[in-house]
């Protein structure tokens, strides 16, 4: 069946279409809360021209951040906006993906993992520049950008 291939990291058992549809169902509700149109967390410098080798490191860092920071702290908003079902579906699928990612820790991969880390720091830096509430809303609202990037690694 279909799977993600982030460079050497393979992820099975996750239907990208399910993730996309979970987000599309709530996209307008979530994005309407984000009125800072002049700031984009997932800028082009974060996701453009990511090599296969980098991709495993980057997706691991991104999903870890989304699970530990965004979904965790955005929870009461999901209740308020009645988007629990979508949010849970996304979070659960992210957990499944993360559980199968094993980015290599070998020395020769150091420069590649550092390059991926710099990209992640760009994203997290932009996140930290905003008020936490605004940052959470914006990060959640940008999941379509993250999913569109993940689609490139879906086969």
């Amino acid at each position: 069946g279909q799977e993600f291939r982030f460079g050497p990291c393979q992820v099975k058992g996750v239907m990208l279409r399910e993730l996309q549809e979970a987000f599309w169902a709530v996209k307008d509700t979530v994005q309407a809360q984000d009125n800072i149109t002049s700031v984009r967390l997932l800028q082009q410098e974060v996701l453009q021209n990511v090599s296969d080798a980098e991709s495993c490191y980057l997706i691991y860092a991104m999903l870890k951040f989304y699970l530990n920071t965004v979904f965790k702290n955005y929870h009461n908003r999901t209740v308020e906006f009645r988007i629990m079902k979508s949010s849970s579906s996304l979070a659960n699928n992210f957990i499944v993906i993360m559980s199968q990612l094993q980015p290599s820790q070998e020395d020769e991969m150091l420069s590649i993992s550092e390059s991926a880390h710099r990209r992640f720091l760009l994203f997290r830096g932009a996140f930290r520049q905003l008020d936490i509430e605004a940052a959470l809303i914006k990060a959640f609202g940008e999941l379509d950008i993250l999913l569109a990037w993940m689609e490139k690694f879906y086969q």
């Binding site: 599309w24 307008d28 994005q31 149109t37 609202g141 379509d144």
Partner: peptide, 10 residues
């Protein structure tokens, strides 16, 4: 008044 975020391909 502003539009929602518009993504042509979608």
């Amino acid at each position: 008044k502003m539009t929602d975020r518009f993504n042509p391909i979608r």
